[in-house]
Design a protein around this nucleic acid. Structure first.
Lengths: 334, 334
DNA sequence: ATGAAAGCGCTAACAA
DNA sequence: TTGTTAGCGCTTTCAT
């Protein structure tokens, strides 16, 4: 049926072992044999069976990358950086999507494990920290967007990010600033808390308004609807870009002028926020940088498996674009 | 090192073969043995080695899905539908990204083949048709967004889609309608031709303006820049949503009023166009529908491998949103 | 530089 | 119902 090493060996008139050596770039193969072997490979259209190879050699040279949600462009951005940073390892990347459901994330991780991946990278992950830590005890694991004790992790400084956004908004004269949160998503608690803290620090605790979101566009839309029905703040800080875009969408639908009537800010600075017709004011780090950093974390971990977990805290920057503006004096109220 | 079937067998006091049977849900295993085995599995934390399993059983039960570009939300949409449509097979999906580069697509496909995938689904693919056909001769292949002779394929009716867009624009009084094309991307030729044809049919051949894009946001931005430097049409039809968003972004940057000064339409009807702050007028089919259809194609192919290729042509619909409007009489000119 | 042989962890006849 | 046996296609000592 399919062409095997034995077929190649027969065709080239050498042993199976020698073919294996030649194909794996061993130096101790004569030029003559190598040529014969390569010729046979080409003629027969031989393609190594990775399942067999990975079974025989104990290492698979494979790393599993789980993206929690393919619809959120931040993960595609991070993956680009990861791909660059991983360099020669990148042919061995196993991709999986969590389809934005914890159970799907779990099965994806299970299959990485079953395939004997050498390491796992979690790009956003909704699983409980305990599960992640359990995983990290089993296999080298790098988590992006989540802080855990035992796994290497990489996060944006949420407090600082929220502060940048809030200072920007208050600087524009806003006092009634609502928050559409990230629900049970990663970093949602930190961002929510930072928002509340900051409002308190400014003596605006009476104006704290939190609406439920879930880091998706739909979540942002729902958050806006609830918010607009209940109260009409002059600014809203959404827990991530995707939900900010949802807010924007509904606002436009309801003929709410952005930014004249309502300022909107996000978090992540995704490629979408940057260069599209959206032009969203947001805070964050280019995903590609995060990918590079994650690749570095993994490389270090692979070099020394027993070292203690590193936690990278990346400083975000503010990107002021077109969705925020001066609070109109008419709507400024305590 | 890692727990194997033999370990489980030893612990449960049965043979390796019986454990294998039990784990694969055979009915001819006594209740008593099954319980002992499951207990041993749990105690030892046994996890089957998929590489070994796939080597031993000749089928891998795996299907490889290649997404040409993770940044284009249409593919995430289609994948959702595919995932639903594949039902129980979905645990066996291998994902890969082409990172928007043909060479990366090729290596991804190579690795699907090396892993002995049972089938391959191409979600957008930049490879030459000949390569795709060669692939389809090797392994059951379904191509979304590309028509080939020997592979099952699924495409949107481009001519109809373009017609819907153009009728909409001309109905609004536009006569100077430019096109930002998809360059060398899939379906780009068909869309470009349909655009030209339709302009000719209306006696507007003198107004045909085609600018170079590549289905990405950046491509749309570049297309807009070139267009705006050279000519100032009243409407532009971009070859896909993502590039339409790029056009929108640059237009906003240049303080071009959308849709008052310039109407913009896309193609694909991605989730982004639908519900975000973008609210893009576009044409297409929900990606999720396409995913379902692709899953169906694959199922049929797997049932009868020798049947001749099916080619599904899906009818698109027009979605009028906020980026198109009546041509202002001032700018209407032959 | 090359080959023989053992074995990776599993499945799948075939026996019992 | 259960165990024995022979591979799956490859890598990897260890001889030569």
């Amino acid at each position: 049926m399919s062409v095997t090493l034995d077929d190649v060996a027969g065709r080239a008139g050498v042993s199976r072992a020698l073919v294996s050596l030649a194909l794996n770039g061993s130096t101790r193969v004569s030029e003559r044999s190598r040529e014969k072997i390569l010729a046979a490979v080409a003629e027969l259209g031989y393609r190594p069976n990775l399942n067999a190879r990975r079974l025989a050699s104990r290492r698979t040279g494979t790393i599993g990358v789980l993206l929690t949600d393919l619809h959120n462009p931040i993960f595609a951005d991070v993956l680009d950086g990861l791909d660059e940073g991983l360099g020669p390892l990148r042919d061995q990347i196993l991709l999986a999507s969590g389809f934005n459901q914890p159970s799907r994330e779990r099965t994806a991780i299970e299959s990485f494990l079953a395939l004997q991946a050498d390491a796992i990278i979690l790009l956003g992950c909704q699983l409980p920290v305990t599960e992640i830590e359990e995983l990290a005890n089993t296999i080298p694991t790098v988590v992006v967007g989540r802080k855990t004790r035992v796994a290497d992790s990489l996060i944006i400084d949420d407090t600082m990010g929220v502060r940048l956004v809030m200072e920007h908004l208050t600087g524009l004269g806003h006092t009634r600033i609502a928050h559409v949160d990230g629900g049970r998503g990663a970093r949602a608690v930190a961002r929510r808390q930072a928002y509340t803290e900051f409002m308190k620090d400014l003596g605006l605790e009476r104006n704290v308004e939190i609406y439920h979101g879930d880091y998706t566009e739909k979540g942002g839309e729902a958050g806006f609807d609830q918010m607009w029905a209940q109260s009409k703040p002059t600014a809203v800080f959404a827990a991530n870009d995707l939900s900010a875009i949802g807010v924007l969408g509904r606002a436009r639908n309801q003929r709410v002028e952005i930014p004249a009537e309502l300022s909107v800010a996000g978090f992540d600075n995704t490629s979408l926020a940057q260069s599209s017709g959206i032009s969203l004011t947001t805070v964050g780090r280019p995903g590609i940088d995060m990918g590079h950093a994650a690749a570095e974390l993994l490389t270090e971990r692979l070099e020394d498996r027993s070292k203690k977990a590193s936690h990278v805290l990346m400083e975000p920057a503010l990107f002021v674009r077109s969705t925020t503006a001066q609070a109109s004096t008419a709507s400024v109220q305590g």
